[in-house]
Nucleic acid binder design. Sequence first.
DNA 1: ATCATAGGATTGTCAAACAATCCGAAGCTA
DNA 2: TAGCTTCGGATTGTTTGACAATCCTATGAT
Lengths: 221, 221
Amino acid sequence: MDLRVTPLGVQSQAVDKLREAIVSGHFQPGQRLVEAELCRLLGISRGSVREALRRLEGERLVVITPNRGPSVTELSWEEAVQIYDVRRLLEGEAAALAARRATAAQREEMEAALEAFEAAVAAEDALGRVGATACFYDLVLAACGNAVVDEILRGLHARINLLRSRSMSRQGRAPESARELRAILAAIRDRAPAAARKAAMLHVQAACAAAKEAMAERRVA
Amino acid sequence: MDLRVTPLGVQSQAVDKLREAIVSGHFQPGQRLVEAELCRLLGISRGSVREALRRLEGERLVVITPNRGPSVTELSWEEAVQIYDVRRLLEGEAAALAARRATAAQREEMEAALEAFEAAVAAEDALGRVGATACFYDLVLAACGNAVVDEILRGLHARINLLRSRSMSRQGRAPESARELRAILAAIRDRAPAAARKAAMLHVQAACAAAKEAMAERRVA
DNA sequence: ATCATAGGATTGTCAAACAATCCGAAGCTA
DNA sequence: TAGCTTCGGATTGTTTGACAATCCTATGAT
């Protein structure tokens, strides 16, 4: 077991901070990220900033246009649909694998996370909801045992967040969402891969539909 | 239509050359990539080399260990299996979408590419085979119309290539492979998404099994 | 009003430097 | 000889400064 504690280089911190700033909407999609500006904000040199930006480019959170530099990725609705398509497949797979492989302890943790989510829904605690959702997802992805699925889905979630910064609301859908997650967990507990896959795909499908509606509202607003 | 011709900055070229060197096996998996060395080989500055390496890290072709620097990714068999799992899903999806969306012209091109592949198989032209395969894949991915699937699969193919550098042989499987591809194309021509998905998944499954055998041979050798 | 031009802002790239870290090899000890 | 310590070279992480190439904008000319 490796208990190394790395002093966490300047760049890694920069990447984390920038990613956080982007997914949280502090930097709006389309906004240009001027290197000199980021140097000032982060207190690091241009070389490090550029490397950090390259990493975020790899995560598709930033687009670097030649001779124009970096800006926050703008996600078209068309591309968002494509992402949801892939998510449907991969989250279905992840759920199926989790149903087959999750240990008893992991099932317990999922149950706890889901209860936390339901509590947050009842309390209309938006922040708690996203935290609990993330926790639930982490557990499923850990249980599925496929690091590649994990890695890709993390990336896709971050990218979808680029949309959500504005259409966050939709809290009306939370109860449905809770029911969908519960269905997934039920299938995982029953060790029913096919059912888990179906439930997870349904959940993504619903999320996509909800995003579409939110998008339409935004469009007219 | 944008017919801009970009002078193609130093870094982009560096990334391309390094990627080529890696997937072609010129740099072996696990080999360390010393920055100063790459500066000499590429004739560019350290800053540019480092940015190029960051990009390749994003493509998972290079691993950068803190305070040890970059080296060519070593793909474990375990991880390769996970990649094949995802490929099965996504190539199935791509084939299904292509079956639904491909234009007549695209079907013709696929037919041509497949015939080229079969010709290369008959002529035992290994290089021609990989070229024709790549071409066929490009056409299917273009026809499927999902840029996210395209992008992810390209990445996964490159990563699987990290394995193949040694286990390239397996030319005995080429005729089977040709039959599998033909089955995919047949389904696409019939506009039968379900059949196309099934055929594509079968193809990946077979490729995975073949890789496993090649791996086992290597292991004992 | 339209076009050309100039100037500022920004990126792309290079060079040089230095501290921190890692790794191997020499030397010392038992 | 085996094992431990120490030392020094190699390599990375990061900074600073510089300059050409490119883009954008505002100014000025027709």
